[in-house]
Computed example of a mutant assay.
Amino acid sequence: MRALRILLIVVVILGGIFVAADRIAVNMAESEAADKIKSSQGLSSTPEISIKGFPFLTQVVGKELDEVDVSLAGITASAGGRSVNVTEVRAELRSVKIDSSFSSAVADRADGSARISYADLTKAAPQGATVSYAGPERAAKGQVKVTGPLTDLLEGAGIKVPGAFKGLLKGRTVTAYSTVGLRGGSTVQLKAESLPRLPLPGFDEKLRQIVDYDLKIAGMPSSIKLDKVEATDAGLRFSGRGTNVSLAG
């Protein structure tokens, strides 16, 4: 019995050492991967990497990781030459196969998501416009609220208003509810449901061209195509899925 007890103690100690070594190895791998992603993508902050599954060392020997979760900050969206921050980009990678030189990998499948706050949506909006939450009913239809002084919107777009009509527009505010859609897997489109008619010939279409605009989201692996957008009280959330997602080292 004493011998058995000693054997069990040895097994427990060795198991603890293996677990500790395994956790040290995975922490080092996560740190190294985060530094490489930051450097290769030119990010302003270090991403968070979480390698799931146990034991890690046997996954490395088999050159396949069960699950890798990546969270990125410092990603941008652009609209009309203006760049704004994307609050967060996440990618959940599954069955990640590592090549023989450990310099690249391919994930069998990946789920990606991105969030943009209303404050950042406003920064990307036409000059003079503010983007905000449209309330639960309109948010359920994928709509956001866009408002702004009419003269600010027109002048911000470089559109001159004839002096004889300036008095008619003074103090007028445009309020529109824009439906958010996706195009090409990475471009966000905002299109106003309806707009007020203006007392200026030909200016209705100009206002439409100002209020409707696109945002191009960068930073998501090219194999992941965004296909869903949700309007929440904190901003817009986008999500998508990809297969055979290539990851350079």
Rank of each mutant, 00 (worst) to 15 (best):
S40E: 13
L43G: 00
Q209T: 12
D233C: 09
M220F: 08
V19C: 11
V86R: 13
P199S: 11
S222P: 10
K170G: 06
V96G: 02
P55I: 02
S103R: 06
T179H: 11
I6K: 06
S246I: 09
K123L: 07
Q59F: 12
G156A: 13
S132L: 01
D204G: 10
V180W: 06
L198T: 12
A107G: 08
S132I: 11
A114C: 11
R197F: 08
D120F: 06
G167C: 02
S132W: 09
A114P: 07
S103A: 05
G42M: 05
I98V: 08
K145R: 13
G128K: 08
L93S: 12
S246G: 15
R90Q: 14
K170T: 14
K191N: 08
R109G: 12
I210Q: 10
Y133G: 06
A176I: 07
M220E: 13
A25F: 04
G158E: 05
G167P: 02
F238M: 13
V174Y: 08
L43V: 00
E230C: 09
Q209L: 10
I75D: 03
T46R: 00
G42L: 06
S101T: 15
L168A: 09
L169Q: 02
V12T: 14
L236V: 05
D99I: 00
T58A: 15
K63Q: 14
K160T: 14
I49K: 01
I24L: 12
S239D: 05
K141Y: 02
G202E: 11
G15N: 04
L150Q: 07
A34K: 01
K145L: 12
